[in-house]
Amino acid sequence: MIDSHAHIYLEHFTDDVDSVVERALENGIEKILLPNIDSTTIEDMLQLEAKYPGVCFPMMGLHPCSVKEDFEKELEIVEGWFEKRAFIAVGEMGTDIYWDKTFWLQQKEAFQFQCELALKYDVPIVIHCRETIDETIGLVSDFKGRGLKGVFHCFTGSADQGKKITELGFYLGLGGVSTFKNGGMDKVIPYLDKSKIILETDSPYLTPAPHRGKRNEPAFVSIICDKVAEYLGSAKEDIIQLTTANTNELFFPIQN
């Protein structure tokens, strides 16, 4: 299995990140993909990559909640890193007006800039969208026909929204919300395009049941996989094979 979205370089893991990675490997997680947040998280993320080569794979991007007055400087830093070395994706990027709508226009500008960056370097984008899924589908639609690819991480939308996303060629990241009793994903996941689903934890956030309230970690991908398999009426092994192939297809296409 692959955890396609985990922030295990954050302070939540400072004291035991080695144990966290070890538990992930013991639970069959072979790769952990690391989305960046902003310039303050780059150093810790890259240190983790250096410590666990072939397991931890970093992305480079600017999270929408970090789009503030200085967002253009932040984007220059993101672009500068792509000029220096390769990353598996532009991310975590996107839109979010859950807490604050002040920088909505700047978020859209940052979104478009990072899409162009992804096209330039031929890598996928990893999209965060909160309270903005329809607007974000629209932003992606503006790039239709240009080869833009990526994933709507932490997908919690409707089956109809999922269809619109997959018809654009994008993937859907399924995480801890899939296990929530009232999360509603039991009525959505059976209708999604199976060739476009991947698994994630969003560690340390959105911990799956029955561990809600505790810190999330990559080992819990196995729990999410169980629930997705249940909703799809499939064997867990088949979902492991499916989602791992999908994730590799998106992030590591040369290896396939």
Rank of each mutant, 00 (worst) to 15 (best):
F180D: 04
F170I: 02
G173T: 01
L168H: 08
Y171H: 07
F155W: 05
H153W: 08
V151A: 09
F155A: 07
R146N: 00
C154V: 04
G157T: 04
F170R: 01
G162S: 04
K144H: 11
G169N: 04
N182Q: 15
K144A: 15
G173C: 05
D160F: 13
G157Y: 10
D160H: 13
G169W: 11
G169P: 07
G150D: 05
G176Y: 05
G147V: 06
R146L: 12
T156G: 09
L148E: 01
F170T: 00
E167A: 11
G175V: 14
F170D: 05
V151E: 05
S158Q: 02
T156K: 11
S178A: 15
L168M: 09
T179W: 10
V177Y: 13
L168F: 04
L168D: 03
F155D: 05
Q161R: 01
S158I: 02
G162R: 02
F152T: 08
L148D: 03
T166S: 06
V177W: 14
G173H: 07
S178T: 15
G175S: 08
K163S: 10
F170L: 02
V151M: 08
E167D: 14
V177S: 13
G162T: 05
L174I: 15
E167Y: 11
S178C: 15
G176I: 04
Y171N: 04
L148W: 01
H153M: 09
H153Q: 06
G173K: 11
K181H: 13
F170S: 00
T166M: 01
F152V: 10
V151R: 04
V151G: 02
